[in-house]
């Protein structure tokens, strides 16, 4: 076998080894890493986390408890946007004295055929206000709207 052929075989072996290593590492990391760690409920991010978890689980009753008192009273329930294959990641939190903004990245995963899984992501913002001793959600991005009034 000439030098070039050996070099090509070596390249092929390196590529295969890299791919196998990637698959093994990804399997180990993804399957051993736990789900979302619960954040402190007294923080804006903790409130958003619990609210989004409730919406994704379809538990609108629980989700409503994280809205402001005023919103809870006037809220006429409606289905949220599609939450199939959704993933919400915390981007940043800006906390002020009486208001807070929680920026999240919302990603949808779909497909899964041979030509790859499709992902679509967008940056969204939750606006929170102090409601007594707790943080409460004033406005949510469209994917997590559960009150009819927010569509009007």
């Amino acid at each position: 076998m000439d030098t070039v052929a050996r070099k090509q075989d070596r390249t092929l072996l390196i590529v295969i080894a890299t791919v196998v290593a990637l698959v093994v590492v990804a399997l180990v990391v993804v399957f051993t890493r736990g789900g979302a760690a619960p954040l402190d409920e007294s923080t804006p991010a903790g409130v958003v986390q619990r609210y989004t978890q409730a919406v994704v689980a379809g538990d609108q009753e629980t989700a409503r408890t994280y809205l402001t008192s005023e919103r809870q009273e006037e809220c006429e329930s409606t289905d949220s946007g599609s939450v199939d294959g959704i993933r919400v990641t915390l981007a940043s939190t800006q906390e002020r004295e009486s208001t807070a903004d929680v920026e999240v990245t919302v990603t949808y995963t779909s497909g899964g055929g041979i030509f790859g899984t499709q992902e679509y992501g967008s940056d969204e913002r939750f606006e929170l206000v102090r409601d007594g001793s707790r943080w409460a959600i004033k406005t949510a991005p469209w994917q997590f709207v559960i009150c009819m009034e927010d569509y009007q």
Partner: peptide
């Protein structure tokens, strides 16, 4: 780690 929704398992 995500706040909520699916982890990376579906993607993987």
């Amino acid at each position: 780690a995500p706040l909520s929704g699916s982890d990376a398992r579906t993607l993987l």
